[in-house]
Design a protein around this nucleic acid. Structure first.
Lengths: 287, 287
DNA sequence: CTCGTTCTGCAAATTATTTTCGTGATGCGT
DNA sequence: ACGCATCACGAAAATAATTTGCAGAACGAG
């Protein structure tokens, strides 16, 4: 799908000359996107035909096709390589944060388990009641966000970031209910406890978390979110954005899974907003 | 900086032939990035030299330079034009949401008022107390997020999504305090009221909102966030991600504005997390 | 109407890319 | 160890793409 991952996959199988080309792409990206085949060949100390063959091997039609592909992924691929913030000057900080956020979205997209999300969406669309759990600044935001998105479709949903409450809610739940929990670290022991309880009660559990983590292992359906920075809980910035995007995708799929009802409810909400636009609180549903 | 905005700027001044080329770029992007100059020329019913001249006029070295530039922005620019979701199949939905989120980040970056953000960051770093206000699913998330980010630097901050409480908090605030509010629609009348009250009390007010909206007009410092979809409060998906990124940037700049203290506090928080990693709740600060 | 400017395409020149073909190297079965 | 097959690679030829220089056409201002 994108050159950089193909390159990573293939690198081992490349010949020495081709490896030299690959190195230039990786280390000297800026040069590579702007170079002609001859310049690139010279720099890699190979002949132009070798470059053409290299492009073909990577699944491109031709060198120019290759360049287009390269330029297209560059956006993201570039920063892959220089992940350090440049300076504390506002423009660099902004650039850094935006880039990392986009990168996170890119990585999320690539690693998404759509089957799991679709499965989760189907369950949620048919749930009697949905419990959205998450603690800590980030995951509680996700839990709230789930509530914020799902209630609009007419679903019954409550969010909680309180461990004690989570356990009680779980204990009171019915088999038709669904429990969905978020944990960036995957090590929220209390969430695992709620999941275990739910499992014993035959309540479907869905986790948004790192794969293979304790939380993931205790859930029925796992929507894995594995980002490089995911491990660094002190830099949750971009990971959080990926989680949010995952929630968006999930919510959209839930909507598609319940078509008519959702449309009706959404229309009702819209009407509320539109007719009372200025001067009262109801507009704020969307604020 | 990017071809699409240049194109938009220049379009009026282009000659008829060049306009035909521009149309193809805009309507038939996918074709354009992959086409050779000859194919493009044929499709636009012009001669190849005209295409070269067109590229030059847009500030490129040559046609191939142009193609690279085009491909680079394409990622984002493409979807500009086909803003409709393709189908309800999970893969398309995911693609659509991710793309729109990235697009929103891109647009945010382009339109960011860094001076305003820097100014806001300086105020926040020196605030006695920070009040973060926002209502409705989205803005209250932003308010919480501000709290979540800023307290880590040792700042005093509280978030509120309750209008009555917001007024009371404002009324009790001191001139060294800072009030920061978010409103996606820019029409949160209650927030305007708090801002007006704060202004009378010489308390600095910062707004994250649409420029020229009532909320923007009532704040001292405006961090404008103007996205095309921003007006459509029923599709807050990507706008929200832009707001979050803006908060990230703001928070980072606040941290740089208060250097030593922030580092110490952050270190303390880290230590808490690291030493108590498994089995207790404190890890969840970062969850 | 005339001049100057701008837009445009043609054809030639230049440049870039691909193909073809041959050499040398490497690996493998005998 | 010896052929035989396969592969990697570059030189040169062939092809294709791009740019340049030039000249005619169209348009507008004076």
């Amino acid at each position: 799908m994108d050159i950089f991952s193909t390159l990573q996959d293939e690198k081992a199988r490349l010949s020495p000359s081709e490896n030299r080309i690959a190195d230039i792409l990786l280390n000297n990206f800026e040069f590579a996107v702007n170079a002609s085949i001859i310049e690139l060949a010279e720099k890699a100390d190979v002949s132009p035909p070798t470059v053409t063959r290299f492009c073909r091997r990577l699944g491109c039609e031709s060198f120019s096709d290759f360049k287009v592909q390269l330029a297209r992924t560059s956006y993201v691929g570039m920063r892959y390589l220089q992940p350090e913030p440049k300076s504390s000057n506002p423009s660099d900080v902004a650039q850094d944060i935006i880039t990392k956020a986009q990168n996170a979205l890119f990585l999320l997209h690539r690693s998404l388990d759509l089957a799991a999300i679709e499965q989760a969406a189907a369950k949620l669309a048919r749930a009697g009641m949905i419990y959205a759990f998450g603690s800590g600044g980030n995951s509680s935001m996700i839990a709230n966000e789930l509530q914020n998105r799902l209630f609009r479709f007419g679903l019954h949903v409550t969010a909680s970031s309180d461990h004690g409450m989570q356990l009680m809610l779980t204990a009171a739940a019915k088999p038709t209910d669904v429990l969905i929990g978020s944990s960036f670290s995957g090590r929220n022991a209390e969430l695992v406890r709620s999941f275990a309880l739910a499992r014993g009660m035959k309540i479907t559990t869905i986790a948004l978390t790192q794969s293979n983590s304790p939380v993931a292992q205790s859930a029925d359906i796992v929507i894995p979110i594995d980002l490089a920075e995911g491990n660094n809980i002190f830099r949750p910035t971009s990971t959080r954005i990926a989680y949010l995007a995952a929630v968006d995708i999930l919510a959209s799929l839930v909507a598609y899974n319940m078509q008519p009802e959702a449309t009706v409810t959404l229309r009702r909400i819209k009407q509320q907003l539109v007719t009372h636009r200025d001067g009262d609180d109801r507009q704020l549903l969307g604020d």
